[in-house]
Every structure is written in structure tokens, then in C-alpha cells.
Amino acid sequence: LTELETIYVTKEHLQETDVVRAVYRVLKNCPSVALKKKAKCLLSKWKA
């Protein structure tokens, strides 16, 4: 997740890969609050 925060991701990348699905899975299933927060921030950033 940290690496995903530092790289530039285009909408095309998100549509062509399962990155969003994987990050969403972390948000829903990971017991770590810190990782959930990171995943939520990434998804919000990409949605904007």
C-alpha cells in the first residue's frame, strides 16, 4: 500500500488491473486499523 501511495496511477491503470479490487479487499478484511486507513485514503484519492 505504501508503494501505491508514492506512484502515479492513471484511471486507465485502475481500469485495466485489479488494483482497486485488491485494495478494497484490504479495506474490508484486514484486521489492522492502520492498513484499513491507508486503503481508504488510496481509494478516496483515486476516486477524486
Rank of each mutant, 00 (worst) to 15 (best):
W46P: 01
N29F: 09
L4H: 12
E3F: 15
E5M: 02
N29A: 10
L4D: 14
A22K: 12
Y8A: 15
V20K: 08
A48G: 01
L14G: 14
V19G: 09
K47E: 00
V9L: 07
R25Y: 01
S32P: 12
Y24F: 14
E5P: 02
E3R: 07
L35R: 03
V33H: 04
K38L: 10
V33T: 08
C30K: 06
T17C: 09
K45L: 04
A48Q: 11
D18N: 14
S44G: 09
V20Q: 02
E12C: 01
R25E: 01
K38W: 07
K38D: 00
T6G: 10
L42F: 08
V20M: 13
R21I: 00
L14N: 14
C30I: 14
T17I: 02
L43M: 09
V33I: 09
E16S: 11
K28C: 09
L43V: 06
L14E: 15
V20A: 11
K36I: 08
L42P: 00
K37W: 02
A22E: 06
K28R: 10
S32K: 08
V23G: 02
V19I: 09
E5Q: 04
S44Y: 05
T17Q: 02
T10S: 09
V19L: 09
I7H: 07
V33N: 06
K38P: 02
C41G: 12
V20D: 07
L1W: 03
S44N: 06
T2K: 13
I7R: 11
N29L: 11
V26K: 08
K45R: 09
C30F: 13
D18S: 15
K45W: 12
T2L: 05
V23L: 12
V9P: 10
E3G: 05
T6D: 12
L42H: 00
A39S: 01
S32T: 11
E12H: 03
L1G: 15
V26Q: 08
Q15F: 07
T6I: 00
S44H: 12
K45M: 03
Y8K: 14
E5S: 01
V19K: 05
N29H: 06
T2C: 04
L4K: 15
K45N: 05
W46C: 06
V23P: 01
E12A: 04
L42Q: 01
S44K: 06
C41E: 11
W46L: 11
C41T: 10
V19E: 03
H13K: 13
E3C: 13
L27F: 01
I7D: 14
A34H: 10
A34K: 13
T6Q: 12
T10N: 03
Q15L: 05
E3T: 04
R25P: 01
V19C: 07
K45S: 03
V19D: 02
C41Y: 03
A22Q: 10
V33C: 12
K28P: 05
K38R: 10
K36R: 10
P31T: 15
L27N: 01
S32C: 15
V9N: 14
T2S: 14
R21V: 00
V33K: 15
Y8P: 02
L14Y: 09
C30L: 12
Y24H: 04
D18G: 15
K36W: 13
Y24I: 13
A39D: 01
L4Y: 06
P31W: 15
Q15K: 14
W46E: 00
L4T: 15
V33E: 07
I7C: 03
A48V: 03
K45G: 00
T17V: 04
C41M: 07
C41N: 15
L27R: 01
V23S: 03
Q15W: 12
Q15D: 06
R21A: 04
K11E: 13
S44F: 08
E5F: 05
K28T: 08
K37V: 02
A22N: 09
T10L: 02
V20H: 04
K47G: 03
E16V: 06
D18I: 07
V9T: 12
E3Y: 07
V23N: 00
K47C: 05
C30G: 11
K38Y: 07
Y8S: 05
D18L: 10
K47V: 11
I7Y: 05
R21F: 00
T2Y: 10
Y24L: 14
A22S: 11
S32A: 13
I7L: 10
T2Q: 08
T17G: 09
T10R: 10
T17P: 12
E12Q: 06
C30T: 03
C30M: 12
V9I: 08
V23H: 01
V20G: 09
V26C: 13
R21W: 03
A34Q: 04
Y8W: 05
K11N: 03
T2P: 03
K36L: 09
L4M: 11
V23K: 03
V33G: 11
P31C: 15
V23I: 14
L42D: 00
A34T: 08
V23A: 04
E5V: 04
T17Y: 01
A39N: 03
L42I: 06
T6H: 08
R21C: 04
L4A: 14
L43C: 02
K45H: 04
L42C: 01
Q15A: 10
A39G: 03
V9K: 14
K11L: 11
R25W: 01
Y8E: 15
K37T: 03
P31A: 13
S32N: 11
I7V: 11
H13A: 08
L43Y: 07
W46R: 01
H13S: 11
K47P: 06
K28Y: 02
P31S: 15
K28H: 05
C41P: 00
L1I: 06
E12Y: 00
E3W: 15
L1N: 05
L43G: 00
R21G: 10
I7G: 14
L42E: 00
H13T: 11
N29E: 03
V26G: 09
I7T: 14
E16L: 07
E12K: 13
H13V: 02
A34R: 08
L27S: 00
E12L: 01
V23F: 11
V33F: 15
R21H: 10
T17R: 09
L1V: 05
W46N: 01
A22Y: 10
A22R: 15
L1C: 08
T6V: 02
Q15S: 07
L14F: 10
K36P: 07
T6S: 13
V23Y: 02
C41W: 11
L14R: 14
A48P: 03
L1E: 06
R21Y: 03
K37M: 01
Q15I: 04
V20N: 02
K37Y: 03
Y24M: 15
Q15P: 13
T6M: 09
S44T: 03
A39R: 00
T17N: 13
V9F: 12
N29K: 10
L42W: 10
K11S: 11
I7A: 13
D18E: 05
T17E: 06
E5D: 08
E3A: 11
L4S: 14
R25G: 09
L1M: 14
T10K: 08
K47H: 06
W46A: 13
L43W: 13
S32V: 15
V26E: 01
E12D: 08
C41A: 14
K47W: 12
L14H: 15
T6A: 05
K37I: 06
V26L: 08
A22M: 10
L42A: 02
A39P: 00
L43Q: 03
K37S: 06
R25V: 01
K37D: 02
V33A: 11
E3I: 09
R25C: 00
L27K: 01
L43I: 14
S44M: 08
T10H: 07
T10I: 02
E12I: 02
C41L: 12
V19T: 06
V20W: 12
V9M: 09
C30R: 04
K37Q: 03
D18K: 09
K47A: 02
S32D: 05
Y24Q: 07
L14S: 15
C30E: 00
R21S: 10
N29T: 12
K47D: 01
L4W: 03
Y24N: 05
V19R: 12
L14K: 14
A39T: 04
S44I: 02
V26P: 09
R25D: 05
E16R: 13
V19H: 04
L1H: 15
L4R: 13
K36H: 02
W46V: 10
A39I: 14
N29C: 11
K47Q: 04
Y24E: 05
E12N: 06
K38T: 09
E3P: 04
A39M: 11
V9D: 15
K47T: 05
C30Y: 02
R25F: 01
L14T: 15
L27C: 00
K36E: 00
E3M: 10
T2F: 04
V20I: 07
K37F: 05
L43D: 01
K38F: 08
V9A: 13
V19Q: 04
E16I: 06
S44W: 07
T2I: 05
V26D: 02
T10M: 09
E5H: 06
K11A: 13
K36D: 02
K38H: 03
K36F: 11
E3Q: 07
H13R: 09
E16A: 11
K45C: 05
E12R: 07
D18Q: 10
A22I: 05
P31Q: 11
T6R: 10
V19P: 07
V19S: 04
K47L: 04
A48L: 00
A48W: 04
K37A: 05
V9H: 13
Y8M: 05
K38A: 12
H13F: 05
A34C: 13
K36Q: 10
K47I: 04
A22G: 10
Q15H: 09
K36T: 05
K36C: 07
V9R: 13
L42K: 00
K28E: 02
K28G: 05
R25A: 06
A22T: 10
C30W: 13
T10V: 08
A39F: 14
A34G: 10
L42T: 02
L4V: 07
R21K: 07
A22F: 06
